[in-house]
Amino acid sequence: MRSSDKLFYYLLKTLAWGVVGLLAAMVLVVLWMSWEALGHFGLRFFVDASWDSWREEFGALAFIYGTLVTSFIAVLLAVPVSLAVALYLNELAPPWIARPLGFFVEMLAAIPSIVYGLWGLFVLAPFLRDHVQPLLATYLGFLPFFQGPQMGVGLLGAGVILAIMIIPTIASISREVFKSVPESLREAALGLGATRWEMLRIAVLRVALSGVMGAVVLGLGRALGETMAVTMLIGNRPQIVWSLFESGQTMASILANQYAEADSSLHLSALTAVGLALFVVSLVINSLARWIIWRMQRVV
């Protein structure tokens, strides 16, 4: 290689590996900043629900709970809708419907989180409060999840906005996965006398199942780390309660709420430790999702 070629090559290589370096630095910096809190509280930090900056008692359990509950609601609501839209667009819709409809769903992914938050706070939450929560309380009120004050904002509201936000993620990856299912399997199913739905069930959904799992996990990953919309809709009160109407707090929303105004170095460190947990969980979830999808595409 000529020396100019070498120089160029090493420059690019350095910058490319710099991306890995960035990721590593991120882990180290966040870990280092969490050290004080982790040393002070140990693993108790993750199973303790108290969060009191006056007495400097910090535990992340309430936020972990809020994150899990809202993400779970989001996935529960988003998965059927995402799969329906992905199947309909890929397998059933004529092109003149599939194109615009696909475009609208993709554009959902382009809307900034803060706009979801704004819309959620002023439009979705009042709608839930006035129309959805009374219905849930009337018909399912015997369940502990649907009791208590109907305010619109809260775990349910945050879960619903998250569901809308992760639909494009799950739908677009599912569409990719469905596309990788060979056409001849669909024809084999139809050739056996399957109805269209039966064909989708045995030749598409069942074959693409693991890839769809990957898409769902990726959607979950997005829901876990989503900050602004959740912060605006969750009510921001760290508590562990059954009722989905109640306010909560997630790992991401506590950071948005308190990070800039942390009172003490222990408070800041504790917040960072919450961020560390969020970081690690999202790395694990995303690695898992990519592995699942990669494996599925290798099999088919």
Partner: peptide, 21 residues
């Protein structure tokens, strides 16, 4: 067509058993 296809079996160019079954 679903009724028709029940009475007519088809075998394709490439073997295509359903994966996952």
């Amino acid at each position: 067509p679903v009724n028709v296809r029940r009475g007519v079996g088809m075998v394709f160019q490439k073997p295509n058993p359903f994966p996952g079954m």
